[in-house]
Design a protein around this nucleic acid. Sequence first.
RNA 1: AGAGGAGUGGCAGAGUGGUUGAUUGCACCGGUCUUGAAAACCGGCAGCCCUUCACGGGGCUCGGGGGUUCGAAUCCCUCCUCCUCUGCCA
Length: 424
Amino acid sequence: MLQITYLREHRLSALEGLKKRGLPDAEQLIDQALDLDQQRREVQAKADALRAQSNAESKKIGELMKAGQTNQANDLRAKVGNLKHELKKLEEDLARCEEELRLHLYKIPNIPAQAVPAGRSADDNLNVYQHGSIPNLPKGALPHWELIKKYDIIDFEVGNKITGAGFPVYKDKGARLQRALISFFLDEAEKAGYKEIMPPLLVNEASGYGTGQLPDKEGQMYCVTADQLYLIPTAEVPITNLYRDVILNEADLPVKNVGYTPCFRREAGSWGAHVRGLNRLHQFDKVEIVQIRKPGESYQALDEMCAHVQSLLEKLELPYRKMLLCGGDMGFNATLTYDMEVYAAAQQRWLEVSSVSNFETYQANRMKLRYRSAEGKIQLLHTLNGSALALPRVVAALLENNQDENGIRIPDVLVPYTGFNRID
RNA sequence: AGAGGAGUGGCAGAGUGGUUGAUUGCACCGGUCUUGAAAACCGGCAGCCCUUCACGGGGCUCGGGGGUUCGAAUCCCUCCUCCUCUGCCA
């Protein structure tokens, strides 16, 4: 959620930024927020003044009672009683104003950073870096959804039976490969200075609001209605919410956390062509890195996180490209996002395996995540996160790119984790 | 899940209706003293919102929400969390 004080002071640059997202009603959104804010402040000023009066009179009643001047105390008591009616109405107005403003601010997405190109869709994203060569596959090369059947390592049918579409069952070397990738990603992150966190997989409503999945993406999360809990769509939610309502000391920074979790996404309405096999699932595994940074350092941290993700892809020998997302394709909460896409040679498609974003203060403002500087000044922090990495599409590309007539080669770096160097 | 107890500032711990946003101790920060350090002493030390160019002024918050009252940390209701006992369970 944007800070209203920011909008008050930087209306024009906010507007300019939001236009890069292609928001047709950006001006209206901002001006309405400013109006609501103006109303709120007026009502609060009145309510505060009235309350100040009533507090002062009440104090006097106490003094009169102590002095034994009961009659005067009773007169005053009646007078203050009348103030209360007036105050009650103002309090209701104030609560309504605050609520309206809050709900309105939830509707305004984050302001894209300077570097973000304007654009409508993924077609307008900028390819800023590319690495590795596109493999030449043998004749008769198969897409991963055929390979997993051929070698019997991932089973969608039995997943359909026990749960439903999009919940595959990993078997044998397929299961082992999942575990190997998770361990590899966690070990690499720890080498890069991240602290491992194993969080709950269900979160409450407040956490959903903290990182911005609620109210915006309510329909995309699985909800356990009996207890009003949500299955996490990403480890970002619990790991960032660790710091909800927290004031960190400057010495505690930067925070660098990593966590492996399964992720659960309803993916309502997003099924179509191109989502076969592992390309899109309701449950998948992901290792997520999260950083919490002082405002001045967050873009440097973003670069550092990208470099980490890129090093993983290079170690796995996967060809990839780094995309700078345009305003229209960027998530609601982010100011700047890089997507990493690997090339899956049998499908002949680039698949997004990581999304690395800076949220600046957007999440921190919702979460009241702040730090106290050495001089004692308190201010909001910047939050960042990135997938490092999401497994299914990495597996898809590994299977497709490393296939030959007799099987699939496992990249050297994974062999110590899998205990085998081929799937056949 | 049932019964009982409890939740106060970074921590510990007072406070059961009236200038108490809160005694005190520890921790922390600044200062005096000291060659330096410790000790001692002095001072500071919650967050948010409104208002003011500023100095300052005002409001809200004692787990969350609601209520009683002129006035609530203190009384009532409700939810959450923790502890003890019983039950259940990997």
